[in-house]
Nucleic acid binder design. Structure first.
Lengths: 335, 335
DNA sequence: ATAGCCATGGTAACGCTCAAACACTTAGCA
DNA sequence: TGCTAAGTGTTTGAGCGTTACCATGGCTAT
């Protein structure tokens, strides 16, 4: 590895002259700058990142902790985060908590030793269930900036990026009601998560607000141990007159659509389905699933922006919560 | 941030005593060690990563460059890499090349300044198309260890992790032939990639080796600009007597299955389909797609292992190519 | 006394930057 | 003409947080 010292020796000048020359310091003579830069390019000199970080106490690296890369939502968020960070000259260190509290604690611990300038994270399922946030607030208290996205925690004092989960589910349910649906079932594999609960509440509120809706709400919660397909089959078996399904997670809407078609439902004539899925599943369905678009890319991008803003203005201004707009995209599974 | 200096001042000992005490040096008195450790724990002292890296010239960080996180194969590989790296005490810096040569060059450039101890990467589509590898060999020549996985390049001197693409496609085609299929079509959206070509060759060779097979091979190549569903429709329209489909990419097998069912094909009676997909798509199909399992998790894990081995034994032993076994998993879309 | 041991302290170095000090030129002025 | 003042362009030195190596000082055993 070629260092400033190497260059300095070769050029018979001091190390700091080289340093200043490479940084275009006005203190250094034009001719010297030229000579230094030429040799630097010729030897493919690269400033040592660690030395810079040590000196400046800045790493230009963001720590990203997500619960699950195989979940398309988080993969897309990660993609957006990487894109935006990279555009702004930051690298990202990625950790996957695997929905586990212990791994989350571990990752935060390991990275908050000067490895990163700040964190972007979404809280693990286990963490949310147990409502443990000490490990996170410890980091925040130490003054390491943190942005939470999607799965946030109200108790934590930091910047956040969320969507209006309640409102999105409310709007979708409202749409089904406006279609004249009389038996709307909600299915969710994220009932345990903050976002899942909010969406369910949106659904419940919409039904409640509709004076003409007579049925009891039906919330079907799928857990990790359940077989999703079986649960969907049960849904149809025990709700013979279902005519609207709101899936508030990534996959169950698609599965419900497949099962419904197989059972001979006419869609959307006799049954409407709305999912929270991303566009990527559309290639697997016919008719195309109507969805609530979460603008995942914007979520990732905003998170990075918020974090970098915070890093730049060390001024302790108020913490911000950005709400990304959702959009109900009607396709083939709704009237 | 609390440093050794802080601890030293509080305890009225020297910095080097503190350092040694925390490292359990036998030079330091038992009682002092105790005192130091207590205060360190109490103040939540964390050794500064940058200082350590600068001193030791080791970062305990691996650079991972993948073409696309939204592709389930790479997401899973990334997952495996993160898991294994983390288990072995390494962090990963993730870059997404987005299939672009320029981004790949950029990422390599930016990280090979001492930010990472080595690289794990899979080559971008554009890079493979243009067959440019200077940026990679430059890194290798500088002595930074590199492991390529899946999309490799034969010209590069480094460790590699691949699957037997040719053999896997050969075996799958063979299976279709053994079923008695007479019109087997291959569909691929990765014809431009090394792995895609190998798979196609495996298919071609299997047909060629079968003296009884009379038809011309049919290779349908899908590009980024194509609409996959249209291409599949065309496939059925122009191959009226197709009775076997081998999809060598992630998605086209599932789409073919859906389209076939819609067109009234009896599966697997009249048409067999084999895909290279991961299990994650199975929830969207009925019958379940038969697939060639790539053991993606093992690919990621092996890559990390190979890289760490290389880091430990700085001895320049021969470069290794690990081939991960594939497995033809027969499910509902084959006889 | 002197060797030998123990516990601790001091210094340099990793690669870099920044402030301050230092030469060396040139201009300004009595 | 001689001396200071004000630039130039460069070097020196300190410091970011660590650890490795060597030095020191006090003690005990010979």
């Amino acid at each position: 590895m070629v260092t400033l010292k190497h260059l300095a020796e070769q050029l018979n000048v001091s190390v700091s002259t080289v340093s200043k020359a490479l940084n275009n310091s006005p203190e250094i003579g034009k001719e010297t700058i030229q000579r230094v830069k030429e040799l630097a390019k010729h030897l493919n000199y690269q400033p040592n990142k660690m030395a810079l970080s040590l000196k400046s106490n800045k790493t230009n690296t963001l720590g990203v902790i997500i619960p699950d890369v195989l979940n398309h939502f988080f993969a897309k968020a990660l993609y957006a985060i990487e894109m935006e960070a990279s555009k702004q000259g930051y690298n990202i260190i990625t950790c996957v908590s695997n929905e586990l509290l212990s791994k989350e604690e571990n990752s935060l611990q390991l990275l908050s030793n000067g490895s990163v300038d700040g964190f972007i994270m979404s809280i693990a399922e286990e963490t949310q269930k147990q409502n443990k946030t000490d490990h996170i607030s410890r980091v925040i208290d130490r003054g390491v900036p943190m942005v939470l996205f999607d799965r946030v925690c109200d108790d934590l004092e930091c910047d956040k990026v969320i969507i209006d989960d309640f409102g999105a589910a409310y709007e979708a349910t409202k749409h089904l009601l406006n279609e004249g649906r009389k038996h709307i079932v909600l299915i969710s594999d994220i009932e345990k998560l903050s976002v899942g609960k909010l969406r369910t509440n949106g659904y419940l509120k919409a039904l409640q607000d509709d004076v003409l809706y007579k049925e009891e709400p039906v919330v079907i919660s799928v857990t990790k141990d359940d077989n999703l397909e079986e649960v969907v089959d049960n849904l149809f078996d025990s709700n013979k007159n279902v005519d609207g399904i709101l899936s508030v997670d990534n996959t169950s809407g698609v599965v419900a659509l497949h099962k419904a078609l197989k059972r001979g439902y006419k869609i959307p004539e006799n049954l409407s389905i709305i999912g929270f899925s991303d566009k990527n599943v559309l290639v697997f369905t016919e008719p195309k699933l109507s969805t609530i678009s979460q603008h995942t890319f914007d979520i990732g991008k905003s998170s990075v922006q918020l974090l970098i803003d915070r890093l730049n203005q060390k001024s302790n201004s108020e913490h911000v919560t950005t709400t990304i707009k959702t959009k109900l995209v009607l396709r083939g599974t709704t009237k």
